[in-house]
């Protein structure tokens, strides 16, 4: 019981902080808009994709991108807590390490899900028809993606002792994962090496699954949905275990 209370209060803290951070919320709204309307419009009329609306094509990718960046940032927030000392207050409490990790993970995941959901209304602005059913189908996929990504962020935060590495994460994790996920271009026409590298990226399966659910028949999936889901599930489980292990070792 005491552990559940600890988990709850850590979850609540993450969510409160997320909702209070007004600049970040503004950012959450505006950044996808820029991608959709400037980048999306430009590419739509230059890239020569005719089978479907390019903006509709990148929309699921942008949801994944927003979740990826937020997840890394929220995971890294543990470093912030360490720098400002609050982590100590949590670590010396009677709550066990795995529970602390779980609380952080659930809190950050809630934030990431909110961040992903915020973007959905924009679908109407680009003429995509996303009904309630499609939205509800997308949610479990988003949840799997979120869990894996947040756990990556928390794992890095457990290993890194300062903010110096934050830029490295941006360059070596965020951007490669985003570019190699097929979020911005289809992976059907790219050279083999790029395709194979992309297949090693768990986010690729997330983007693929989201498209399968959201775009209907116009989109030809890379993998059947069950494979996407299986990979995402495996990714989430493995990262959760790795994250719990890494976090339990922090001093």
């Amino acid at each position: 019981m005491s552990e559940v209370r600890g988990i709850y209060t850590l979850w609540l803290r993450e969510v409160k902080k997320f909702l209070r951070e007004k600049p970040r919320l503004l950012n959450a709204f505006v950044q996808p808009l820029l991608w959709l309307f400037i980048f999306g419009t430009g590419m739509r009329f230059s890239a020569g994709v005719t089978e479907y609306n390019y903006q509709e094509f990148i929309f699921p990718g942008l949801v994944c991108q927003a979740m990826l960046f937020t997840a890394m940032f929220m995971g890294i927030s543990v470093i912030w807590d360490r720098e400002f000392g609050f982590l100590k207050e949590i670590l010396v409490s009677p709550v066990s390490r795995p529970s602390i990790f779980l609380g952080k993970m659930l809190g950050a995941s809630t934030d990431v899900m909110l961040q992903g959901i915020i973007i959905f209304p924009f679908a109407y602005l680009i003429g995509a028809r996303i009904g309630l059913l499609v939205f509800l189908e997308a949610l479990p996929i988003m949840l799997l993606i979120t869990t894996g990504l947040v756990c990556i962020g928390l794992t890095f935060a457990s290993v890194m002792k300062s903010f110096e590495g934050f830029g490295l994460i941006q360059t070596f994790i965020n951007l490669p994962m985003f570019f190699l996920s097929g979020a911005l271009f289809p992976l059907t026409n790219v050279p083999d090496w790029l395709r194979w590298v992309s297949f090693c990226n768990p986010l690729t399966y997330g983007v693929d699954a989201m498209r399968t659910v959201m775009m209907g028949n116009v989109f030809v999936p890379l993998f059947p949905l069950y494979i996407d889901i299986a990979v995402l599930f495996g990714f989430a489980v493995v990262m959760f275990l790795v994250g719990t292990w890494a976090f339990s070792r922090t001093e």
Binding site: T9, R13, K17, F86, S93
Partner: peptide, 17 residues
């Protein structure tokens, strides 16, 4: 302490932990 939280919230968190 968590500077982005109120005094009350900091105490409440501690009570839960």
């Amino acid at each position: 302490v968590d500077a982005d939280m109120t005094g009350l919230e900091n105490l409440q968190m501690h009570a839960d932990l």
